[in-house]
Design a protein around this nucleic acid. Structure first.
Length: 897
RNA sequence: GGGCCCAUAGCUCAGCUGGUUAGAGCACCACGUUUACACCGUGGGGGUCGGGAGUUCAAGUCUCUCUGGGCCCACCA
């Protein structure tokens, strides 16, 4: 070792054995200290590239899918920065909402009880609980303020871990630009946008049937629904016709002619417990079986209510018996029937999903009330069993229930089926009830550039299918409160249609503790006083404003003007209908523009069974473990190998390839730099070494050909990255790089050492330097750590590679000075010589006494141009280039030493 | 019921507007201690491009159809 080149002959900082270990921490620290990714502000809008980073839900854990998609965005950010843009790349934390509440409940073993007073000395009973859903009975009740404090405390801890992961991954985020969706600024922005919506009539309050989750005891929005197949059963129930026609003397039950005789009509239902909520029967207007029933009344079994039989086109003759009972409310179709036919309301379900204690209006008969008493307070499940028992006893249940499996609507985060309960809620217009707005929002979808383009269709489908406005109020605790109070009238009732709003400069407000202007705190809840709106906004109602929050629409005009509308919204495909659409709605209403120009949609990560990776499958690998095991550049390489919009397999093999590439970058660079350093007046010694190399010094055809090929790579990679096609850019760069290592470096090794004289050496050294410089910058967005490490060996001025200019073809010399085929042909001939040695099972070092290689005639000149380099690399004393009669390069003879 | 995406080597994927003999990496086999790299290098084997039909001088690529996956929306008596 010591008889060879001393380390001091290399650039002083080039390590003897380069390694990837520790690069993440080393460079994260350096970038942080140097402010490498700091947004500068002050440049015109067209020199800024702004990114609407998705704020991850901090209450959930990050998984490989996050690492995957955030890497895609970081590649864009780094590319744009090297193109010379001032990149605005903030990070938000979505800590607002139900997931945080649920996590806090489990972690600290508490639950929110708004009626309790605040306890400033409260200590949670536990820390670090991760139980799936601890029983509510074991959770300590705490005040709303205590609960919110715990939410904030845990979120802050979670956010630190998230930041550590993102830094380790090498995301080039400006860590001075962060926000939380629950912080003061986000609250104020969210409240301000809401007040503007309210002032323009886009936000409104309505008492209406609402999709309701009985576990979380809150309303949910259309966008949060999912269908799940559930077991159920059809119950065939007989309704007696009301006594407006001749009453038959014989008992109709069991009679084969019961239906046709008009005495009894049978419906089939999966929700027998809703019988007391029945307000009508409905059949299709053209259904011949029920023509004589329309307009008449029937009696609800057990409960004695008299309800009309009505006709409506939505009734399906082929479902069940073709006639259905309308309840308030069993499903969304019930709501339509109820609304369109002005049926009465007989709600029987409370917020907790239990049967209300008092029977609804119209349930007047003594037997009906007695039966109802048996249901009061029961859960839906128990009530159903009870009703079936009662029906059976009364002889109103025909046959046995027929088990079926059917889709039932759930809140996507919920565990029990949704119910529909009439409640007062806030809505925001979103085109669901307004054709003009809908058309306008569809036009916004067309205006937006989608990567890949077919994702546009998902937006269109969603907007076209909307059937209601956006329900934004939630009966929860940890969220942005509605900035609204109501006057309380002399009878103690809130006057909902005269909301009191705060001035914009007072935001954010908490109406639960703040007092509106003109009132005193002690007037809260008193007749003649005021009361705060108790609800919080849906988390999407705030995260739909991430562009406005991040760019400080509310309070920093110069930042806002230089970053909004943003350039890029990266996000996952499954939240196009929620986050993306909602963001478009808010910007359309407030700014009359798109919130961002481009949307880049990442795919999912699939496990080896081709299923979407999820926690429940037990196959989730922790992202930090992955980064530590393979190295961040390696994991990034795997992510970068997958196109936008395409689901990708979780493939450690691909990470190994990425790691190999990173190591190769270190080693090949070390080698190439050793030539630059050896030269007496090494160009590498100059601070601007990379760009100071003069392509005019590259005189050898092989060297020129290599640079010509690299020029093309630069063109392809630049074009691909500009079109968000990072895989294409990476592939082109990588393919070239391996040829560069395997063939070019081998071919010029001897010449670069001086074997061909000073001019040939200079040509090779310069070409190596030029190529290495361009290659490192081409790889920098993909492998930020390895490339930065190499750059630091070379450039001692401390400038990060990540702020260098993106390579351009011109820096590699003129395009038309040489035969571009020389490198490929020389590689082919060298390959033929290697094959001879491989087939002879001898070392590559073995001397070739004489060899003949056949080369297609049109490539002979190119081969001749590199003949000396080929002979040196192949250790051939004599090489004959014969004319091939095929168009491939073939070994003809080889005499080995 | 409507819509979108996908199907190419054992595996993961390229293959752009149709144009020689369909590519890469991993895995596999053989060889090689070559001072850039054993977290390596060199060479090699391996595919009738899911099935069928059509358009064309020419189809992995375009059209239709079938099959099999994945996803979204609608329906929910």
């Amino acid at each position: 070792m010591s008889q060879h080149r001393e380390p001091s002959h290399l650039r002083p900082t080039v390590p003897e054995r380069p390694s990837l270990d520790g690069l993440e921490d080393k460079w994260d620290r350096a970038w942080s200290e140097q402010g490498t990714y700091t947004f500068e502000l002050g440049r015109p809008r067209d020199q800024v590239f702004s990114i609407d980073t998705p704020p991850p839900t901090v209450s959930g854990s990050l998984h490989v899918g996050h690492v995957f998609s955030y890497t895609h965005t970081d590649i864009v950010a780094r590319f744009q920065r090297m193109l010379g843009k001032d990149v605005f790349y903030p990070m938000g934390w979505d800590d607002n909402g139900l997931p945080t509440e649920r996590r806090v409940q489990n972690y600290y073993g508490v639950r929110c009880e708004p009626s309790l007073p605040y306890d400033p000395d409260f200590q949670p009973p536990q820390e670090g609980g991760e139980g799936k859903s601890a029983k509510a009975a074991h959770q300590v009740p705490v005040s709303r303020r205590n609960f919110v404090e715990l939410c904030e405390r845990l979120s802050t801890e979670d956010e630190k871990q998230f930041e550590a992961l993102w830094r380790h991954l090498g995301l080039s985020i400006d860590w001075t630009q962060t926000y939380q969706t629950i912080d003061q600024h986000s609250r104020a922005t969210s409240q301000l946008a809401f007040l503007r919506n309210l002032a323009r009539g886009e936000a409104y309050q309505q008492l209406a049937p609402t999709l309701w989750d009985v576990t979380f005891r809150t309303a949910v929005a259309q966008a949060e629904l999912v269908d799940r197949d559930q077991p159920g059963a059809y119950h065939r129930i007989g309704f007696e016709r009301a006594a407006t026609v001749d009453a038959p003397t014989d008992d109709a039950v069991g009679s084969p002619h019961a239906d046709t005789a008009g005495q009894r009509v049978h419906i089939e239902t999966t929700r027998p417990e809703l019988l007391p909520a029945c307000v009508a029967l409905v059949a299709h207007p053209d259904d011949e079986r029920y023509q004589d029933l329309f307009g008449s009344h029937v009696i609800v079994p057990l409960f004695g209510t008299e309800v009309p039989v009505v006709a409506h086109r939505l009734a399906a003759p082929d479902k069940g018996s073709g006639i259905a009972m309308v309840c308030t409310f069993g499903d969304l179709t019930d709501v339509v029937w109820w609304r369109e036919m002005h049926l009465p309301t007989r709600a029987i379900l409370g917020w907790d999903g239990r049967i209300l204690p008092e029977p609804p209006m119209g349930l007047d008969s003594p037997e009906g009330q007695a039966n109802y008493k048996q249901l009061a307070g029961l859960t839906i499940f128990s009530a159903r069993q009870r009703v079936v028992e009662l029906l059976r006893a009364a002889g109103d249940l025909e046959g046995e229930p027929q088990p079926i499996t059917h889709p039932v609507k759930f809140f996507e985060k919920g565990e029990r089926p949704l119910e529909i309960i009439p409640t007062r809620q806030w809505y925001l217009t979103n085109g669901g009830t307004d054709e003009e707005l809908r058309a306008q929002l569809l036009a916004r979808g067309d205006e937006l550039t989608w990567f890949p383009d077919f994702m546009r269709v998902r937006y269109q489908n969603w907007v076209e299918g909307l059937n209601s406005d956006w329900l934004i109020s939630r009966q929860r605790f940890f969220g942005v409160p509605f900035p609204i109070w109501y006057p309380v009238d002399q009878f103690g009732h809130p006057v909902y249609d005269r909301p009191i709003v705060p001035p914009e400069d007072r935001l954010p407000v908490d109406p639960a503790s703040d007092t509106p202007a003109g009132y005193k705190p002690e007037q809260r809840g008193k007749p003649g006083g005021f009361i705060g709106d108790p609800d919080v906004m849906d988390t999407w109602a705030t995260s739909s404003l991430t562009p406005q929050i991040a760019t400080h629409w509310r309070d920093d005009q110069s930042l806002y003007e230089s970053t909004f509308p943003m350039d890029l919204r990266p996000q996952a495909q499954d939240i196009i209908r929620t986050w993306l659409f909602a963001t478009v709605v808010r910007a359309d209403l407030e700014q009359h523009s798109l919130p961002f120009y481009n949307a880049a949609i990442s795919g999912f990560i699939l496990d080896p069974d081709r299923k979407k990776m999820s926690k429940s499958k037990g196959n989730v690998v922790t992202p930090m473990g992955l980064l530590v095991e393979h190295g961040s550049d390696a994991v990034r390489y795997w992510a970068a190998s997958a196109r936008l919009g395409t689901d990708a397999a979780f493939e450690p093999g691909q990470m190994k390839v990425g790691r190999r590439l990173a190591i190769k970058l270190l080693n090949a660079s070390r080698f190439a730099l050793s030539f630059l350093a050896e030269d007496g007046d090494a160009p590498a010694a100059s601070p601007a070494a990379a760009l100071g190399l003069d392509p005019e010094l590259v005189t050898e055809p092989l060297d020129r050909s290599m640079l010509a090929a690299l020029r093309e790579v630069v063109e392809v990679a630049t074009e691909a990255l500009a079109a968000y096609d990072h895989t294409r850019a990476l592939e082109a760069t990588e393919t070239f790089f391996w040829t560069f290592c395997d063939d070019y470096i081998e071919l010029v090794k001897a010449r670069a050492h001086g074997a061909g004289g000073p001019q040939g050496a200079r040509s090779a050294q310069t070409a190596l330097g030029l190529a290495l410089s361009a290659l490192l910058r081409l790889f920098a967005p993909f492998q930020p750590f390895a490339t930065e490490e190499v750059w630091s060996w070379w450039h001692q001025d401390g400038d990060s590679i990540h702020r260098q200019p993106w390579p351009v073809p011109a820096e590699l010399g003129a395009a038309d000075r040489t035969d571009p085929a020389v490198l490929a042909v020389a590689g082919g001939v060298l390959g033929a010589l290697r094959k001879a040695k491989s087939e002879a099972k001898v070392s590559m070092r073995t001397e070739i006494i004489a060899a003949t290689v056949a080369v297609p005639p049109d490539l002979t000149a190119a081969a001749v141009a590199a003949k000396a380099d080929i002979m040196a690399a192949g250790r051939a004393a004599e090489l004959t280039l014969a004319a091939s009669d095929t168009d491939t390069i073939e070994l003809v003879t080889a005499e080995l030493a």
